[in-house]
Design a protein around this nucleic acid. Structure first.
Lengths: 94, 94
DNA sequence: TCTTTATTTTCCATCATGGAAAGTAATATA
DNA sequence: TATATTACTTTCCATGATGGAAAATAAAGA
């Protein structure tokens, strides 16, 4: 059963981009996404939290050579929701 | 020079669908769109006004056998903005 | 211990969106 | 002609989304 479910959590412009940036990778750094989206820390942090609360992304803090960095990855549910949303968009716009 | 401009006026779920429903046609009836989107009169009317104010759609009242009906069509600017937005989405989601 | 780095959370203001109800304009009906 | 009906439109109101700035927090380094 293929999903083609429009998902308003994912549809929000910044969150669509966040998911799209993570999707091709296993995980992406917070700071990298922030730079790509060109948004403030607080804004990105809030969108990340929204996606995390939805169970769509997983947040991991890794400490590599003294620096703490936050890595984001799509959960299985998140990947499914993203793919489903993209499918829904394709269905809408043809 | 092709446009691939993300357009937040068009991105809103209902308006994306409104544009997508009109796009393949020269014009579509208000009531048909309302039925497809399953929204109230007032909601559709307001989204139509938003798109009209943006210069994206043209609203025409036609009176056919006694009944007034409103027909919606994309303006040239609207079609360009819609195509551009779809292109932007494709660029984002790959 | 005091900083610095990397977020996170709070505060605040604005905008978007939606439903319900009232308003409008153009007929149709009694 | 008065009233009703159809097809939206606009207003009112309430809620939720979004963003920036600034304060708060946590972990590691000097």
């Amino acid at each position: 059963m293929k999903e083609h479910q429009f998902d308003s959590i994912i549809h929000a412009p910044n969150r669509l981009q966040i998911c799209a940036l993570i999707a091709p990778n296993s995980s992406v750094e917070f700071s990298v996404i922030k730079e790509q989206l060109n948004v403030s820390d607080s804004v990105l942090s809030k969108h990340v939290k929204t996606l995390e609360d939805a169970g769509y992304i997983q947040v991991e803090k890794k400490i590599a050579n003294g620096r703490q960095r936050t890595w984001l990855s799509l959960t299985k549910a998140g990947r499914g929701a993203f793919d489903g949303h993209v499918a829904a968009l394709r269905e809408i716009v043809g």
